[in-house]
Simulated scan of single mutants.
Amino acid sequence: MPIESHTGGFKGFAAFRTYIVWRPIAHLGYFHEEYVKRRKWLDEKNYADLVALCQFLPGPASSQVGIAIGIQRAGLIGGLMAWLGFSLPSAIALMFFAWVLKGLNIQHAGWLQGLMIVAIAVVAQAVWGMASKLATGKTRGTIAVLSAVVTMLVPTSMVQVLIIIVSGLIGWRFFKNDTMQETQQMKLKISRKTGIVFLTLFFAVLFVLPLLRLGIHNQGLAMFDSFYRAGALVFGGGHVVLPLLQQDVVPTGWMTNAQFLAGYGAAQAVPGPLFTFSSYLGFVSALGGIIISALA
């Protein structure tokens, strides 16, 4: 049953537990296990639709799926609580790393490599569990396998978008007459008008910030503009955003390349979305501090 309005978004903090899981696909697998199979907050088809939508949108896909689940359960407050519960532990941990591990190189630490190997099992379980539900039959299975192979051979954001479009067209052509499994209609506790307002705000900030940056020479504003563009224009997981961030924070003198790489090593060691690497970058930047970290 949906959360009633008087409970607000506090149920969204169930997402807080997700901080113990690693990286986007592992996150999606945990979401599936927790919110589809165990809690039954939404069914298989609705969850698959959410994942497909968030993979198609720019920004961190796993964070967006978590936010969408929070909105589906408890409206905008639920989405906000889900985002905080999912991202805040990792952000705090990376700020702590920035404070404690300055100058240390942990990129190739043995214990870090061991944790990354453990994550492979989580990802494999997630892929297998979702494949058995969503890629049934030879044709669907073939589409899924070929999509995975092409994605690994050509790991670019445009190829990912092209795969989604082509796979969708193939599915529309060959499966449009299939009898759809009866599913529960997803009810999002947000109006169309509110959605349009937020979409307008998204583009307004995206275009206004660079103009303000040209007219107002303020490092805090410049940093906010750089990180907003990185989150708004990049498709794929956190690794895709790293080159864009590096180009913005190192040549500008906000930090050294060694500091950037050390922070990346710390981000690999911390569970949660890799996009919270931005909290580390804000903390070790020339301005530094908790406020700038939160801004980043």
Rank of each mutant, 00 (worst) to 15 (best):
Q185S: 11
D178Y: 05
S279L: 06
Q72A: 08
V51Q: 04
L94S: 11
K37T: 08
G253D: 09
K189R: 11
V122T: 15
A204F: 07
T156H: 03
N46C: 07
R73E: 15
G265I: 09
L162W: 03
Y47Q: 07
K40G: 03
K40V: 02
W254K: 14
H6P: 02
V208Y: 00
F224C: 07
A126C: 08
T194I: 09
S5P: 02
K11W: 04
Y35L: 03
A68Q: 05
G8I: 06
V159I: 11
P24H: 04
T179E: 15
M186S: 12
A15G: 01
T136F: 11
N177C: 08
Y228K: 01
R39E: 14
F235Y: 12
F207Y: 06
K37E: 13
M81Y: 01
G220C: 02
L101S: 08
L287E: 12
I67K: 01
I163V: 05
L209P: 03
P155I: 01
S285G: 15
G75W: 00
G220Q: 04
G272N: 09
I117E: 15
G253A: 11
K189G: 09
F16A: 08
V197T: 03
I292K: 12
T256G: 15
Y47S: 07
F198E: 01
W111A: 15
L274G: 12
L233D: 07
V208I: 05
S87P: 00
F203A: 02
M116H: 13
K138T: 15
E33R: 10
L153I: 06
A262H: 11
G8H: 03
T156W: 01
A204Q: 00
A296K: 04
T276E: 05
Q259K: 13
M223T: 10
L274W: 10
Q160C: 04
A144T: 08
G79W: 00
G215I: 03
Q64K: 01
G114P: 13
A131P: 08
M1G: 14
S5E: 10
A98G: 14
L212F: 03
T142R: 02
L245C: 14
P60W: 08
